[in-house]
């Protein structure tokens, strides 16, 4: 921890990531464009989440009944996987800021594996549902369950594609105290995928 602080202070171009350290000036991590993209994605999901909640208001009994057929354990497990995946990417960014070049690709890989775990769990969940003959046209609840979770699923895949690129770049020594810009941009997108699931899980799987 002491070495971390020293390393961060020795690199005046980058603010130290240590908590409690006074920031020199407000700084938006990564590229400005990625934040506009994230904002657009968040607004799209805000519409979907509201559509689900308001559709439920006129189909309360149906939603409450079929929500019970969802596998809450797998949903919670997937929440833990995405949170931990996000945490590993934070660790990769922190490693870059303290110039710990070797720790960057290692943490990106661990974050990627968490994303992979999420996809495997989701496929198991979908296989059980589709195997039981459930489809988008079964009822309003399943239509929302499948479309919301699948749209999110696609975002996890895109996030993992981004992490793959970051991993290759990090292995080539692209990131460090001198440059963490691209890494921070990819990390912000990956955290958005986590943020969306944090709302989606209680909304679709638990709240009644």
């Amino acid at each position: 921890m002491h070495a971390m602080t020293t390393a961060a202070q020795s690199s005046p171009l980058n603010p130290p990531p240590e908590p409690g350290a006074a920031p020199a000036a407000p700084r938006l991590p990564g590229d400005l464009a990625i934040w506009f993209f994230i904002l657009a994605e968040l607004l799209a999901f805000a519409v979907f989440f509201s559509a689900y909640a308001f559709a439920r208001a006129s189909h309360v009994e149906e939603f409450n009944l079929y929500q019970q057929t969802l596998d809450r354990n797998l949903g919670a497990l997937n929440t833990l996987l995405l949170i931990t995946g996000s945490w590993f990417i934070v660790r990769a960014v922190q490693a870059a800021h303290r110039d710990d070049i070797k720790a960057i690709p290692r943490n990106i890989l661990l974050g990627w594996l968490c994303g992979g775990g999420f996809l495997v769990v989701k496929v198991i969940e979908y296989a059980a549902k589709f195997g039981a003959g459930i489809s988008m046209s079964t009822n309003t609840f399943y239509m929302f369950y499948i479309s919301l979770t699948f749209f999110h699923f696609m975002h996890v895949i895109l996030g993992m594609v981004i992490l793959t690129v970051l991993w290759f770049q990090a292995r080539n020594g692209a990131y460090g105290g001198h440059n963490a810009h691209g890494l921070e941009s990819g990390a912000a997108y990956w955290h958005m995928v986590d943020l969306l699931w944090i709302v989606l899980f209680p909304l679709v799987y638990v709240m009644r």
Partner: peptide
């Protein structure tokens, strides 16, 4: 804490 927006604009 993950997106690090605490110290952002």
């Amino acid at each position: 804490d993950f997106m690090e927006l605490r110290e952002a604009p």
